[in-house]
Amino acid sequence: MITIYHWEPNANSGKPMLAAAEKGVEYESAYLDMLSFDHHQPEYLKVNPNGTIPALVHGDIVLTESTPMMEYIDEAFDGPSLVPVNPADRWRMRQWMRFVDGYMGPSLSMLGWSIGVGPIVRQRDPKELEAAIERIPLESRRRSWRKAIYNLFSEEELAESGRRLSSSLTLMEDVLSKREYLACDTYSLADIDAFNSCYAMPLFQADLCNQGKTPSVIRWLDAIRERPAVKETWAKSREDFGKRFEELNSALAHN
């Protein structure tokens, strides 16, 4: 039995959850409330001293990088493979995961924190918040969190994120108009990775991601949302993220 330490099933936390669900790998779910900074508490730091989520514990092996973690799940357990057989398709899978993890995702999460998560977190007691930031083990993460929590993004940075998102969507629309999924015509880890960053775009970036501008991206998101493993995983949501997921489903039903 493996244990996955995670927050909501979106972004990085959702990657190992979804990969495991698709494979039919049972796991013990250890939910950490990221907005209460559970992942910087001593108990979790014993599992992952860097205090990042998700983490996967398999016997005495502890994995903490979400994208390589998905390939581990695929290789270490039985079940349908989520990694294409053709080496060039595998390369495409990894290439798209890196693009989402290193370029598109950070732009999306900067915008997301600025308009969504940041205002929620700032409702907390300022002293408590500052103490919570000071507990973050990695200096680079402390910097990112401080920026995110206090919305220290400049207009230029936010505009740059918008530009990157827009150009990413153009590239994504291009490939998804030529093949069924991101890496090839079969569902792979690249789709899980990208879906977890992009699923709410039709709600929050509706001006860029819609039926008129990006029909193939919409088709792709709709298809993934319908997968039993995705529904099962999203049922583990405890926050508004789950409601948002339902909202997307009902928007789909009314189309």
């Binding site: 092996i61 994995l63 990088e65 994208t67 390589p68 973690m69 390939e71 581990y72 290789e75 270490a76 890196r98 993890d101 290193g102």
Partner: peptide
Amino acid sequence: ANGRYQARSWGQYVAL
């Protein structure tokens, strides 16, 4: 699989 996970994690760290 664990060794390959380590290799891929380093690959990610080096690139990013």
